[in-house]
Design a protein around this nucleic acid. Structure first.
Lengths: 158, 158
DNA sequence: TATTGTTATACTCTATAACTATA
DNA sequence: TATAGTTATAGAGTATAACAATA
């Protein structure tokens, strides 16, 4: 495809966004069934998979700004799904640990999410899904390169 | 992949979202070089491709709520990139028409967007890109099915 | 009565500056 | 001084209710 015939609906970037928005809308409904949003589901799942992470590490891993994570963790702690624990070695840091209720909720929610994902991928063969994931990884990588290049340019201009 | 090993990073839905966010972040930078945002670029491009559409038709085509489109069109009209024209046959309706400046801006911006898209897809063969677009269409379709099913359920409950 | 564009409004997600307490 | 968590706040994007003009 050349730039000449690149109309709005022909843009792969727009197809990517439409599919993402549609998929995340469905996922949001699954999250809501468990009283979760995308961000709270992500944080609770990560903390369950890797207990003891600091908030800053969770924020880094999930690309969430630290100030925004405070409310998310507060919400999950308020519902008794995880607890904050002051790090023994560095009393500035809060490590995060799932409660039993949190682990149970993650198990249930993740099962529903996986089921929803199967519905979304219905009609695609395993090789097609693998090819999709490869393509998505390439795009994410290329976009990251773009961001770094723009950042370097900004730095060198300063 | 079964639900059993579905950790956060293994979810295809999350890979899809990360790639989409990364790609749209880059596109946003391209739009900004022309004084546009994603929404204003989309509207101006569509109006240039299909002049004379009513606002309600543009909103429907781009999945933008009509109230939100008012500001977008107002911004583009204020910059002299398109003009509203009261429909002769239905004086409630406003049809949208690109100005010369608007058409020129779309040509320039679309060229940059297509170039950016090529960078994003760098490393993928044309068949791989085609397979990606097929997979994205399947996901969007499946998600739409999900939405309709949920809506039908909601209606039948009422 | 229904529809188009519009106004006002609210809600979510995200981003940044600045504070505190620790290091 | 630098970092972790926090507070407050601002912005973009999106969603709904209600109104005037028109059909």
């Amino acid at each position: 495809m050349t730039a000449a015939d690149a109309t709005l609906r022909a843009l792969t970037g727009y197809c990517l966004r439409r599919a993402s928005v549609a998929a995340m809308t469905d996922f949001a409904r699954v999250f809501a069934r468990h009283g979760l949003r995308r961000t709270t589901f992500s944080v609770l799942t990560l903390v369950t998979e890797r207990p003891g992470l600091r908030q800053a590490q969770v924020a880094e891993a999930l690309a969430i700004e630290r100030p925004n994570l405070v409310q998310i963790v507060g919400e999950l702690e308020g519902r008794g799904l995880l607890r904050r624990e002051t790090d023994a070695g560095d009393r500035r840091a809060q490590t995060l640990h799932p409660t039993l209720a949190g682990r149970r909720l993650v198990t249930q929610a993740m099962a529903d999410v996986a089921e929803q994902e199967e519905r979304l991928l219905d009609g695609l063969t395993p090789p097609q899904v693998e090819a999709l994931r490869t393509a998505l990884a390439v795009i994410e990588h290329n976009a990251g390169m773009q961001r770094e290049a723009a950042h370097d340019q900004q730095v060198s201009r300063a």
